[in-house]
Computed example of a mutant assay.
Amino acid sequence: MQLATEIVVRTLTAVVLSLFVVSTARQYLMDPSRITLIFFALSGVLTVGLAIVSRVPRERDWNPVSLAITLFGTFYYLAIRTEPGIRLVPEFYAVAIQLLGVVIQVYAKCSLRRSFGLLPANRGVIVIGPYRVVRHPMYLGYFVTDAGFLLANFGHWNVLVIFIQWTLQIGRIMQEERLLAKDDTYRKYMSRVRYRLAFGLF
């Protein structure tokens, strides 16, 4: 039953991601100067694509709150308006910020290898790479990438979606830590690495 559920969920996730990538590509082809669209799509592919091939966890949080947070936190990009918005900074600067966010994501995900997924789960405690500095560097990468996209595609709707996204991601982090804190290894890790996202702040 668990395997069948995994297959169905991952297949649907792949379909939704494909539709988003096609839609974003169409917007980009209409205006190839909007490179931020490519990096926004790349961030989605990294997030969802790697989750599709991740290992099945030992324990997963199917709590309705966790599920709702995860669904919006993962698929929020479907609510983003990819039509041209207001460029608060030149495209090049926005892309540079996005690139930084993607690099942080890739570094974090390379450290995790296949210990990565969407729902809060215990896939083993990782304490190498950027996880030696903050406990959730992958989410930091998401935030930086979103900020770069917003700077070149500003609009009231996108601000609202990304604000909700960031708020829910904080909730997602708290849910993950609630589950992982059951593991003695993770509790020791929390005592060594104090900050979740921003060193000295949170």
Rank of each mutant, 00 (worst) to 15 (best):
V15P: 07
R87A: 15
P57E: 08
R114G: 00
I52F: 08
A96K: 01
G117A: 06
Q105P: 04
G85H: 11
L50C: 03
K109L: 15
R34V: 03
L100S: 15
V56Y: 09
I52T: 09
L88P: 04
Y93N: 05
V106E: 05
A41S: 13
L99K: 04
V65L: 13
T82E: 08
M30C: 08
L46A: 09
A79Y: 07
G101A: 05
A51N: 02
R81G: 14
F20E: 11
A79Q: 01
V106M: 14
Q105K: 06
A94M: 11
I126M: 05
M30W: 05
Y77T: 11
V16F: 15
S18E: 00
I69R: 02
E59G: 00
Y107R: 01
K109W: 05
N63R: 08
V56C: 00
Y77A: 15
V16E: 11
L71G: 04
L17K: 10
S43F: 12
R87K: 13
G73C: 14
R26E: 11
S54E: 08
A96S: 14
P90Y: 04
Y77K: 11
L37M: 04
S43D: 07
L50R: 14
E59Q: 14
L78V: 13
R58Y: 03
C110Y: 06
V103Y: 06
R26G: 05
R58A: 10
V125F: 07
V134F: 09
Y131F: 14
S23C: 02
V45F: 09
I52A: 07
P32M: 02
I97A: 03
L67F: 15
S33G: 12
L88M: 10
G73W: 12
R26I: 14
A51E: 02
L29G: 03
A41D: 06
L42R: 02
V48P: 03
V22N: 08
V53Q: 04
I104N: 02
L118T: 06
V127S: 15
F116L: 10
I97Q: 08
L112W: 04
I35T: 06
F72V: 07
G85I: 10
L17A: 13
L112I: 04
Y77H: 14
P64Q: 00
L19N: 03
R55H: 06
V133M: 00
Y76P: 07
V125W: 06
K109H: 11
A79W: 04
Y107A: 01
L88D: 02
I104Y: 02
L78Q: 10
Y93F: 15
L71T: 13
D31C: 11
L19S: 09
R81A: 14
L19Y: 06
L67K: 13
W62I: 08
V89C: 03
G85E: 13
R55M: 11
Y131N: 00
I126G: 01
I52R: 07
R26A: 13
L67T: 15
R132C: 01
N63M: 05
P130S: 01
F92T: 14
T74E: 12
A41H: 03
I86N: 04
W62K: 08
S18K: 00
T36P: 03
I97W: 04
L118S: 02
R34T: 02
C110D: 00
P120L: 01
L119K: 04
L29P: 01
F72G: 05
L42W: 09
V106Q: 08
G44S: 12
L42M: 13
P57L: 12
L29A: 11
V106Y: 05
V15N: 05
R34P: 05
